[in-house]
Structures are given as structure tokens and as C-alpha cells.
């Protein structure tokens, strides 16, 4: 039984290490990049979510966003949300993972493909679940994740900071860690054709 306990603790150590290891963070542009092809409402803050279609951890990110949207009242500032699924150009069957459908069910969310991760590269998103919030004039307010660890939905500072940034219209002090699969794979995030 001692072996079982030790093995389990060792396994748990690996699991925790995996769960608690944040993904890579790129540098997000402080102002909305002009070449971006993402549709934008100049009257409302813009919330961008970059997601790997197969990343199981990002389900927690979408869950957190759904919860946040549901919590916001009509009088609160409602951002325009765009969920970008990063995929190699022309790749087939990447919608089947189920995250696409989950994202479609987010209230007021616009879901689109980011072919070859051009927009992700443009906005410095390197990990699935990376979220960026720009105010109506294109100033970066928030950059980071809204989950406490890989695949773990629940209270966390990232979600709290995002809500604060939305409500106050002021940028957060430091970027929040993003927990999810990497978007920086071979053939992805190629330099934008600008």
C-alpha cells in the first residue's frame, strides 16, 4: 500500500505540474493593430479569444466566459466578443472537437477561423485560451487567461481582472497566465501576409 501511496503521490505531482504549467505568453500590441481583419464595433470594447480547436483545457476558458457573460447585467458594459479558432489553412474536420459549437452558444459571440494563426500572430497569442480586451478606442486593457490551471474552471484572478478591466475601462497591471495547448505549432502562426 505504501508503494501505491507513493506512486499516486508521484503521479499527482506530475499531474499537478502539468496542470499548473502555464503556456507561452506573447507580447500583445498595446493598440489595436490596423491590419487586423477582425470585424470591430467602434462603440464597444473588443474581446478576442484565441482557441486551439482540439485543446481540452480551453473548454474551461469558454465556460468561464459563459459564466462571466451571464453575470453581466444589461447596464454593464457588453464587449463585442470574437472567438478565433486557429487552424492550418484549409484543414478539414477541425470543427468536430466540439469547442466550436460551445463557442457558438456564447451569448453575442462572433466565431471565426484564424487561418494559419495570422491574427494570433498579430495579437501575440501563443497559447489556446489567450484573451485580449481592447477598449472601444483600441487601447489594450487585458491580456491573459481566465482559468486557474489547465482545464480547471472556477474562481481565479484572471477572470476577476478581466471583469474589473471591463467595468473600469482601465488596463490591468500585469498579464495573467494562460493555461492551454500551444498555438505555436509547425505550420501555424506564420508571419502575417501584410
Amino acid at each position: 500500500m505504501c508503494f501505491a501511496v507513493i506512486a499516486t503521490l508521484w503521479g499527482m505531482r506530475i499531474l499537478i505540474g502539468f496542470d499548473q504549467t502555464a503556456g507561452a505568453m506573447g507580447v500583445a500590441p498595446a493598440r489595436w493593430p490596423a491590419p487586423s481583419e477582425i470585424p470591430r464595433d467602434p462603440a464597444r470594447p473588443q474581446l478576442l479569444v484565441f482557441v486551439h480547436p482540439f485543446c481540452p483545457c480551453s473548454a474551461a476558458t469558454l465556460e468561464e466566459l459563459e459564466r462571466m457573460t451571464a453575470r453581466r447585467t444589461r447596464t454593464s458594459v457588453q464587449p463585442q466578443m470574437t472567438v478565433l479558432f486557429v487552424r492550418p489553412r484549409g484543414a478539414k474536420g477541425w470543427r468536430s472537437a466540439g469547442l466550436w459549437d460551445t463557442a457558438r452558444q456564447l451569448a453575442g459571440a462572433h466565431v471565426m477561423w484564424d487561418e494559419d494563426g495570422q491574427e494570433a500572430h498579430r495579437f501575440g497569442a501563443l497559447t489556446s485560451g489567450d484573451i485580449l480586451l481592447y477598449e472601444a478606442h483600441g487601447i489594450l486593457l487585458f491580456h491573459g487567461g481566465v482559468t486557474g490551471s489547465r482545464g480547471h474552471a472556477g474562481d481565479n484572478y484572471g477572470a476577476d481582472e478581466l471583469t474589473l478591466a471591463l467595468d473600469s475601462g482601465r488596463p490591468v497591471r500585469a498579464p495573467q497566465m494562460v493555461f492551454g495547448c500551444s498555438l505555436a505549432g509547425v505550420g501555424l502562426l506564420a508571419p502575417a501576409r501584410e
Binding site: F3, G11, M12, H52, V186
Partner: peptide, 25 residues
């Protein structure tokens, strides 16, 4: 089931944990 790194993937440590829990304890 898997951990994704771009287009490549590996078995998620959670999957290993679930499988190995049997022989472990």
C-alpha cells in the same frame, strides 16, 4: 485525451494517471 502542440499531440498526463491508477493502488 490528448495534449495539443499545434498540429502534433501526445497523450495527456490525465489519461496516463487514469490508466496507471489501476495497477498503482
Amino acid at each position: 485525451p490528448r495534449t495539443w502542440n499545434g498540429t502534433s499531440h501526445s497523450v495527456n498526463p490525465h489519461m496516463w494517471a487514469a490508466i496507471l491508477a489501476g495497477p498503482a493502488f
